[in-house]
Simulated scan of single mutants.
Amino acid sequence: MLRCAVLDDYQGVALGLADWSRVRATSFRERFADQDSLVAALLDYEIVVVMRERTPFTASLLARLPNLRLLITSGMRNAAIDLDAARSRGVTVCGTGSGSTPPVELTWALILGLTRHLLPEANTLRSGGPWQSTLGTDLYGRTLGLLGLGKIGSRVAGVGRAFGMDVVAWSENLTRERAAGVGVRLAPSKDALLAGSDVVSVHLVLSDRTRGLIGERELSLMRPSSYLVNTSRAAIVDQEALVAALKADRIAGAGLDVFEVEPLPADHEFRTLSNVLATPHLGYVSELNYGTYFREAVADIDAFLAGTPIRRLA
């Protein structure tokens, strides 16, 4: 019976969400401090299941795991796995399904939490402070700007329209016809979207083209009353520039679910800035999604053991 390691199972739920009886499965809840400790833990495992991009599988790591035969990622895309290196070492890489509904819902939780000041108001209520201390920002009639109009962005747009917002979108290859097809306007440019939106929400895939897409100049185009929400990838927004803009109140606030280093360091300013609503990368963390991830990971293992791997990435 092959040994299977399930990494970054922060909540300790993986082994209870699927039938792992065909392998000897072990769940690891804590992140490994460095590659040496990770290699020491995984050296005897033939199968590893990774959660999204929490633990990168680089060429150097793969070279140090000679027993690894099957690597499974949640979702069908994982930029933290060196697929060429895996392929060259004979490691099969497979993926699973992943629903777009949970990140859509979290995006709106962040937008509503920011604009209605839910966290400070709830904390004030708990502490016995003043009854009502802020004025919420109305969404009706305001402009929602979407950077990216793919599967998730399109659904975020639909909710924005239901709130009575004027929804505009931009991405490098977005066409007027595609935007109109989901009932939104195509912004004439990225700069125009940033300057004209009350809420800007990021829904782009991280790539060489989108890394650092929103920097100091772009943030300066936003209104002092506007909000930035990022549930996509942290590196799309220059993190130092964002901290500076928030500290100087050049934008009203930010809703963040993704960070360049995760878990977020204990002393990071995003943990303490009063105009930041931050969550620990919860976009895809839901009962339905996790059930899909781990049941389909087991199905990938079964297919691999039968000699007919499915949902292959490499």
Rank of each mutant, 00 (worst) to 15 (best):
S133P: 01
A169S: 15
R87A: 05
V23H: 00
R311Q: 12
L204S: 09
A297S: 15
R52Y: 12
W131P: 02
G90D: 04
L135C: 13
S232G: 13
W170V: 03
E172L: 03
V258W: 09
L149P: 00
L246R: 04
E218K: 07
R211W: 07
T210Y: 11
G160W: 01
A241G: 10
W108A: 02
Y227T: 00
R126P: 00
G158A: 15
E177F: 02
L221R: 12
G75C: 08
A169T: 14
V200D: 01
V276T: 09
A195W: 05
R311A: 15
R295G: 05
V182L: 08
S60D: 15
L219D: 13
A85R: 01
P120D: 09
L112N: 11
P103R: 06
T308D: 05
N230Q: 10
H117E: 11
S27K: 02
A245K: 04
D257I: 15
L186T: 08
L144S: 10
D138I: 01
A33N: 03
G255Q: 02
L42R: 04
A63R: 11
A33Q: 11
G196Q: 13
L61Y: 12
G75R: 06
S226R: 11
A180G: 14
G99L: 15
G183R: 09
S27E: 02
C94W: 07
I310K: 12
D19A: 08
A234W: 12
V13Q: 13
H203E: 09
G150R: 03
R54D: 09
P188V: 00
E218G: 03
L2F: 09
L305E: 13
G75D: 06
R311E: 07
E260Q: 14
P280T: 14
A252W: 06
S201V: 14
D208W: 06
A248Y: 14
E172G: 14
V298R: 01
F259G: 01
V258Y: 10
R185I: 04
A278M: 13
G145S: 10
A195Y: 07
T308H: 11
I72E: 02
V182W: 10
